[in-house]
Amino acid sequence: MTDFAADSILVAIEATPAGDLGPAAPGLLGAAAQAGTPVALVIAAPGTGDAAAAAAAEAGATRVLIAELANTSALGVPAADALVAAAALVRPDAVLVNNSADGRDLAARFAIRTGAVLAADAVGVRRDEEGVVADHSVYGGAFNAVSAATFGPLVVTLRAGSVDARLAAQPLSAEKLEVVPSGRPAGTITAFEEETATSSRPDLRGAARVVSGGRGLGSEENFALVDRLADALGAAVGASRAAVDAGYIPYAHQVGQTGVSVSPQLYVALGISGAIQHRAGMQTAKTIVAINKDADAPIFDIADFGVVGDLFTVVPQLIEALEARK
């Protein structure tokens, strides 16, 4: 089976060991549809490809290529081999990959091997008269930029949670992809420790509401207050780098320049001064709320509702008021 649509956008999705597609996949397919016909490549462990393909069609892929990788301990190279093979078959106008640790590696390896142009950390893709272009939000949302390739396909890593569009399910049209291993040297994954899902809280990336805590929380025990407010609001939990450095919470929760960039409907900053590097990751939020005991904290310059006060008295009262409404 060949003849893929001329305006195909190839979405590369690395499935989890269990065969599900992860939270970013529906947004990637939704974004792809804004630039052309979404075709999925699912890269999966042996025996899980069919389940992953079904999930991709469910999320809107018109066609699905399945690459089951025999070698799951080689880092990065087998996935890149699969993407190179898929692109040779589909000849897409653009390749879309999640802007995660593995997604960035995959996009970068593919770009080098095929000479394609990269658009990193995009917040959307679309098509203008000359072809596919990528939208970027630069320097913490202070600038909007649009990038494109002089010619050839554009390889885009898409910031998780940046595209809201979701597609209707498609009838499953899947085929196995033949991948010849490149034999390129790779690192080896010797162990994997799964993060045990400790709560039903939403993922930080793409969450509609985020409650973040900073150094002002003072200790790991006190940081539980951030979790409590997050649960009262149905929000994800974020943090400043100072809170991460102090060990209150793991790095995966860091919001900012060198952490996660979020654009939620509501962002609540507790005991965070609002350093420029923190603001870079959250100032595109719709509504910003800050509680800080220092009236001169820079976070108040961008807050829609600022409370100058002690978070240890204001937050419990807020939680009580929210719970009283339920």
Binding site: G115, L118, V138, N144, V146, A149, T150, G152, F300, G306
Partner: peptide
């Protein structure tokens, strides 16, 4: 092939609300 910037625009700075 190379990457090109098609356009760049500065967004207005955010303003403070109620305090």
């Amino acid at each position: 092939a190379r990457s090109i910037m098609v356009s760049v625009a500065e967004k207005p700075a955010r303003e403070a609300g109620i305090k």
